[in-house]
Simulated scan of single mutants.
Amino acid sequence: MGELLALLSALCFGVTHFVNGVVSRRHDGLTVALHAQLGGTALGLSLALFMGGGSATLADYGWGALSGVGTGVGVAFLYRAMSTGAMSVVVPVSDVGAVALPVLVGVCVLGERPALPAWVGIAAVLPALWLVSQSSPEPGDERQGAVSAGVPSALVASLGFGVQFLAMAQVGTDSGLWPVVLSRVVSVAVIAAVLGSYGAGWELTGRPWAATVAAGALGTLAIVLYLEATRQQLMAVATVLSALYPAIPVVLALVLLRERLNRRQAAGLVFAALAIGFIALR
């Protein structure tokens, strides 16, 4: 059951990022991120009130708040990246580091010892990031291997999502959903701070607003499913399965948005898939 919950989490994450990525094409990505998290906060609060129960400790709330910081950074910079770069490139970039970071923390801080396949996967992360970030030079442009638009922001998002997964997995099994609610509230505060620092607009109305809020609520459902998956499965397995979400927006971007990859980027996506797969075998 834990594996199924993690895969459902990945599906929800994928749809969330695709919808908000499309909205970010016409509206500032930071503004989209803010309204998405507001929608997610509303759903989280509703679920917590409806389900009740739980006995969260101060530590649980601390982990929830830290997860919210990661979520805020991850969502803000991912949607900023998708407003300038190809979705089929920036989403995988934001994911590979999110998978590798929990593994590295497990090894260096928690004393975990991955098996050989996991080390192979970790080694594949760097070439995957380098290849998938390479843009095709324009006709007459002598530059080779220019970094694709949005990749720097996607790398920042990658660290944020890594913190999100790591911290949320530490929340106790009897804590209920209030740490998730705190996580959403903190993420809104972080995004608002980033948005203010960049001087982006605050307003989003009409159908884009409705789509963004609905997608943000789906993102909260994704983190709730992930949290439950970590309670029924090893954190490493739940994290890697939930981190398969880029397959959804990448496929949808290639099919519906008619995005195209160059050979280096296609090879990078293969390396990314191999990295995630090998890490899952740790």
Rank of each mutant, 00 (worst) to 15 (best):
L274C: 14
L8M: 13
V151H: 00
F50E: 07
A267P: 07
A98H: 09
V75T: 14
E203S: 12
S136K: 15
L177I: 07
G140I: 12
V75R: 02
V69E: 07
R113D: 08
G2S: 13
L8F: 15
W202V: 10
R263T: 15
T173K: 14
V250C: 11
S153P: 02
V240F: 03
G162F: 05
S94P: 05
L155W: 05
R184M: 11
S133L: 07
P102W: 08
G145C: 13
A214Q: 02
Q265P: 00
A193I: 13
V120T: 10
L8Q: 10
F77W: 11
A154T: 08
S55A: 13
V99E: 04
M1W: 13
G145Q: 05
I122K: 01
A273F: 14
L110I: 08
V73A: 07
G201W: 05
N20P: 01
L34N: 10
E203H: 10
L126G: 02
D174F: 12
V23Q: 06
S67M: 10
V180A: 12
L45H: 05
E259G: 00
V132A: 09
S183P: 03
S197C: 09
L104P: 01
G53D: 11
L244Y: 01
F50G: 10
A81N: 04
G54Q: 08
L227E: 09
T84S: 14
L45M: 11
A273Y: 01
G160I: 01
L116C: 06
P117F: 06
L252K: 04
A10Y: 02
G111I: 07
V23E: 00
V73H: 02
D174Y: 07
